[in-house]
């Protein structure tokens, strides 16, 4: 029986964990937008302190956040390098063709680095403190306005939550198929890259077949239980917007104001 956790959710009961997922979602978006207001050391310091404070409130160890940066490291370093070598202007103390190094370009590079790290920290904070199910609830709620243009919000939300729920089952299924193929002499994780890719095919085909079977069975079960589209359905799971949620959004408003003041220095 698979005990895998979808996403990177870490169970906990901190203030951040208990927030309404909609508040966390909106706050993350606001953060990604206002980070572009930052243009000097003071603004980055303010943003950095704010993020560290949020991390502290989540009671999640900082190492999880640093781990979150690791897979993006190459992309970050590449972008930073571009920024450093291709920023024109300043007083370049080194130049070779179009490549140049100046105090200004190095500072810009550091800013880019900070910007990436902060965005990764804040989105890791969202995924670490919110269950996938809460996320799908929040997405459903935030997409509601799209109903007006006949976008099937409820259907998409149901699909999302069923898909999330069947990941552990499908991962069990994958293990079973891999074992069955191993018993028939397939080697996984050996040979060159082409061989390894070829070894995946005998996993994928049975997995497709079995997911279609599951989908068929599930659709019959849903129909038997009276599922007839989203019209006229009521909702059992509900989100509760509470005072701390309003406070969180207010604090982001304050942060925006602080950034606007600091940026003109």
């Amino acid at each position: 029986m698979g005990k895998i956790i979808v996403g990177r959710y870490l169970p906990g009961n901190s203030l951040i964990h208990r927030l309404d997922p909609r508040a966390k979602f909106i706050a993350t978006f606001i953060f990604v937008a206002i980070i572009f207001l930052a243009n000097n050391w003071a603004t980055y310091l303010a943003l950095g302190l704010f993020v560290l404070w949020a991390v502290y409130l989540s009671k999640v160890s900082l190492t999880f956040f640093i781990k979150g940066v690791r897979p993006m490291l190459f992309l970050i370093l590449f972008t930073v390098a571009l920024q450093i070598f291709f920023t024109p202007g300043g007083n370049p103390f080194w130049q070779w063709g179009i490549l140049s190094l100046s105090k200004l370009s190095i500072i810009n590079g550091i800013f880019i680095l900070l910007r990436f790290t902060l965005i990764i920290f804040i989105s890791t904070l969202l995924t670490i403190t919110t269950t996938p199910l809460q996320m799908s609830d929040a997405i459903e709620y935030l997409l509601r306005p799209l109903r007006k243009i006949h976008f099937p919000v409820d259907e998409v939300a149901l699909m999302l939550s069923i898909a999330l729920q069947f990941i552990p089952l499908l991962s069990d299924e994958t293990t079973k198929i891999m074992n069955a193929q191993r018993a028939r002499g397939v080697d996984f994780g050996e040979g060159n890259i082409i061989k390894q890719i070829k070894a995946i095919v005998p996993i994928l085909i049975p997995l497709f077949v079995s997911s279609f079977n599951i989908a068929y069975d599930l659709s019959i079960a849903m129909e038997a239980r009276g599922y007839n589209g989203s019209a006229g359905r009521t909702k059992y799971r509900q989100l509760h917007w509470q005072k701390p949620d309003t406070l969180v959004l207010t604090s982001f408003g304050l942060l925006t104001i602080i950034l606007l003041i600091l940026r003109s220095y």
Binding site: Q165, N213, R225, G226, G232, T234, Y236, R237
Partner: peptide
């Protein structure tokens, strides 16, 4: 293959949600 809800209570509620 017949568990629709993400948790036990959600699954039990599925038929009731359908009935509105």
């Amino acid at each position: 293959h017949q568990f629709v809800g993400a948790t036990v209570e959600d699954d039990v509620a599925f038929g009731l949600e359908n009935l509105g």
